[in-house]
C-alpha cells in the first residue's frame, strides 16, 4: 500500500456545545492513501457528510470539531494538521490540495454566474500570477476532460442538464490538480445511466491524474465496484474497514452484512433481501455499548455494556464488533 495522503485521527464532531451537544462523529480514525478510492458508506444520519465537512472545516454552525487531527501529507514538504491552519493558510489549502464535489449537483453552481466565471475565479484565487488567457485555456481543457464542449463555458448553470452540471463540478474539483478529492454523494441526484457514465469517467480520470478519492455514499453496491477500500460508518463511528472485494465477499460486522443484503446481487445464487430492521440511532440518546446492538440479530452479552473498539480482526481488516475480538486496536 502506498503512503498515506490524508490521516484522520480521533476526529470528533459535535453539533452544539456543552452538555446539549450532539456527537455526530465519534473518534473516527481513517487513512486515505495516495491515489486510492476509499469508500465511506452508511445510512442517513450516520455522520458521513459531517465527517467530510468536519475534515475540510466547512461545518456550518452549530457544528464544531471538538477533537482529533486531520493530517495532510503534501507531495513535498512536512505534514500539516488541517485543523490548526490559520484562515489564510486554510484558504490556500482548500481546493489546491483537497477539493470537494458536493451532494447537490443542482445547487453547487451559482445560478447568476456563467460557468466560466466560476471556473476561472478558483484558478485566479490560487494562482494570482496566471494570465487571463492562460486561465481560459485551462478552463477549456478542464471541460474537455469531463467531456463537455468548451463553448459551454459561456453557459449559465440553468442551461445545463443535471449530469452536465455535476461534470462541471468535477472539472472544477480537478482545476488545481488536488491530491485528494472528496465526493459527497456526487451521483445521488442523477439517474442510473448518468451515474454510470460519470463514475466511469471519474475512474478514468483518477487513473490518469492519480488523485485519491474519499467517496461518500449510502449506496454500498456502488462502492463495491468503484472503490479500493470501504469503510462503514454507523452512529458516528467507523464500524468496519476492509478492501472492497473482501468486504463484499465476507462482511465481519453484522451491520455491514445487513447493508450488503439490502440490495440484490446481479450474479450468483438467488438470496433473500433482508435489509436491517429498526431505524438509525437517535444521536441525542445513543444506546449504551455498541450503537448497533438494538438492531443487531447477533447481539450477545457484552454488546449492550461496552463499546467495541475498532481494531484489526485480520490483517488489513478492521472491525469494531464483539463477535470479532480485536487482536490489536488501531493506535491513536
Amino acid at each position: 500500500m502506498s503512503d498515506p495522503v490524508l490521516e484522520i485521527r480521533g476526529l470528533r464532531v459535535d453539533y452544539g456545545l456543552g452538555d446539549a451537544a450532539v456527537h455526530a462523529v465519534r473518534d473516527v480514525d481513517l487513512t486515505l492513501h495516495r491515489g486510492e478510492v476509499l469508500g465511506l458508506a452508511g445510512e442517513s444520519g450516520s455522520g458521513k457528510s459531517t465527517l467530510a465537512y468536519g475534515l475540510t472545516r466547512l461545518l456550518p454552525p452549530p457544528g464544531v470539531v471538538s477533537g482529533g487531527q486531520v493530517v495532510y501529507h503534501p507531495v513535498d514538504g512536512p505534514p500539516v494538521d488541517v485543523l490548526t491552519l490559520s484562515p489564510a493558510q486554510l484558504r490556500q489549502f482548500r481546493w489546491a490540495e483537497t477539493s470537494i464535489v458536493f451532494q447537490g449537483a443542482m445547487n453547487s453552481l451559482n445560478p447568476v454566474h456563467k460557468v466560466s466565471t466560476q471556473l476561472l475565479d478558483v484558478i485566479k484565487a490560487h494562482d494570482p500570477t496566471s494570465t487571463a488567457a492562460g486561465r481560459l485555456a485551462r478552463a477549456r481543457d478542464l471541460l474537455r476532460l469531463v467531456g463537455i464542449a468548451a463553448d459551454r463555458l459561456d453557459s449559465y448553470p440553468h442551461q445545463l442538464s443535471g449530469g452536465m452540471r455535476q461534470r462541471v463540478m468535477i472539472a472544477m474539483a480537478l482545476a488545481l490538480e488536488p491530491q485528494v478529492v472528496i465526493m459527497d454523494e456526487p451521483t445521488t441526484a442523477l439517474d442510473v445511466v448518468m451515474q454510470r457514465q460519470i463514475l466511469g469517467q471519474l475512474a478514468e480520470l483518477r487513473e490518469r491524474l492519480g488523485f485519491a478519492v474519499l467517496f461518500i455514499t449510502h449506496d454500498l453496491s456502488l462502492l463495491v465496484e468503484f472503490s479500493d477500500r470501504i469503510a462503514i460508518m454507523y452512529g458516528g463511528r467507523i464500524v468496519e474497514e476492509a478492501p472492497a472485494a473482501q468486504l463484499y465477499r465476507q462482511a465481519l460486522h453484522p451491520y455491514t452484512e445487513g447493508l450488503l443484503h439490502s440490495f440484490p446481487a446481479l450474479r450468483g445464487p438467488r438470496r433473500e433481501l433482508t435489509g436491517i430492521p429498526g431505524s438509525p440511532p437517535d444521536l441525542r440518546a445513543m444506546p449504551k455499548g455498541c450503537a448497533f446492538h438494538p438492531r443487531c440479530p447477533k447481539a450477545f452479552d457484552p454488546c449492550d455494556k461496552k463499546v467495541p473498539v475498532l481494531g484489526a480482526a485480520e490483517p488489513g481488516r478492521d472491525v469494531a464488533c464483539w463477535l470479532h475480538p480485536v487482536a490489536a486496536p488501531v493506535p491513536h
Binding site: 466547512l58 489549502f93 481546493w95 470537494i100 445547487n107 451559482n110 447568476v112 454566474h113 484565487a125 463540478m169
Partner: peptide, 26 residues
C-alpha cells in the same frame, strides 16, 4: 445556506469575494 456558498468557501476564495460575488450578488 445555499450549497454554492459552501462550494465557494471550499474553493478557498477570499471571504470578501464569497460575500460579495456569491452571497450578496444573489
Amino acid at each position: 445556506s445555499e450549497d454554492y456558498i459552501t462550494v465557494a468557501h471550499a474553493k478557498g476564495l477570499s471571504e470578501r469575494r464569497v460575500a460579495l460575488s456569491y452571497a450578496a450578488r444573489n
